[in-house]
Design a binder for these strands. Structure first.
Lengths: 210, 210
DNA sequence: ACCTGAACACCGTTCAAGT
DNA sequence: ACCTGAACACCGTTCAAGT
């Protein structure tokens, strides 16, 4: 009876997450359907429900893996704490912007997977080195995560927009109604985005360790 | 020939956005399908495509309205700049958390609508009052937006998670592997979320105007 | 326990019409 | 120009089986 199943143990949460990550690399976030993930894993769509309760759970696993893969290596090592944090910020930004749509996924699922846990711990290590401990440390590390992930998600959203339309919108800002915004738009165009991103991070860290 | 159309001018981008906002209030973000929005507006699904190129454009219009409605009134007035910024932060948080899913939408579309433009201008006004002008003002206002929207989106994502599972995950943090995280989780549970949110905002603003 | 086929109740978007 | 019915190519998820 060929094609007829039975307990085959071909599948696992790991295999499913791998398949999803592969699809994300190739086709972006909108390629991440349960049916396509299942097909990539060589299995019927509903087989995924043995390992995950629903699609959101699969996405959470993918997000956790992405965060761990890009953030955690940069935070490990014995460089000074500020260098580690900056290196992590650059790595996680590059890693997430590489997959279109990954940044938006990060903001729509809670960061509670095992890799995210390690991420938080490494960030707390760095802050402790900076002299931030006790109750403030928890709030400070959360603020850093918020800034990083928010900045990456907003940049990805902007990136996804039609560049022509974006330029037109920037040029069409009526300076008589929005004088400061019009001036800002001209200024912002001269910076690159990593520079802005790190500038904001440094200001936040300044406020946190002051 | 009853039910047969012709140019009726019953529809407009405004009417569509209103219908979408109504659905968002009632049913959350997953109620926002083109077919349901059309039904709420009393029209066939494809009629929406006369006014918006695709679903993403409709969502952008919704997001712009939400931001404008909640952020801009609080930034208008003659209170000291820091009070205006804090009041705006509280208002936009409450306004977005009130619609489940609205926060995630904000992070997945560029903030380039008319209301968002006004939002940016009002924020730049406040920062100018704080003495932040020139090239730094643009980067500073962007950093503030990133923090606010990122914090709200992450809080909404956490809120959306199953509370039982969340508590279980927090309690299950192995202190021998993640000592600082385990200690933090205990601390964080004693704060309310608005307090944490404003604490981070204040630290960022400290770094920006220092 | 693990996987399947088949089905249910949806989607966004397009196309060729009608007025 | 503005709206329609009908269709296309999908979705996530559930259910009753099979091994």
């Amino acid at each position: 009876m060929p094609g007829r199943p039975g307990p085959r143990r071909t599948l696992s949460a790991e295999v499913i997450t791998d398949a999803a990550l592969g699809l994300l690399d190739d086709g972006g976030a909108e390629a991440l359907s349960m049916r396509r993930i299942a097909a990539a894993a060589g299995v019927a769509p509903n087989a995924l429900y043995t390992y995950f309760p629903d699609k959101a759970a699969v996405l959470r696993a993918v997000v956790d893996r992405l965060v761990g893969r890009h953030a955690n290596p940069a935070l490990t090592g014995d460089a000074p704490w500020r260098d580690r944090v900056r290196a992590m910020a650059v790595a996680v930004r590059a890693g997430l912007l590489a997959h279109p749509g990954a940044a938006a996924m990060i903001m729509s699922a809670p960061l509670d997977g095992p890799e995210a846990l390690r991420f938080g711990e490494l960030l707390l290590d760095a802050l402790a080195e900076a002299g931030v401990t006790g109750p403030d440390a928890a709030r400070a590390s959360y603020a850093v995560m918020v800034y990083l992930l928010g900045a990456i998600a907003l940049e990805a959203a902007d990136q996804g927009a039609d560049p022509g339309a974006r330029r037109a919108a920037a040029a069409a800002i009526p300076a008589e109604h929005f004088p400061r915004t019009a001036a800002s738009a001209a200024v912002i165009a001269t910076y690159n985005t990593v520079e802005q991103y790190l500038w904001g991070l440094d200001r936040l860290v300044d406020g946190l360790v002051r």
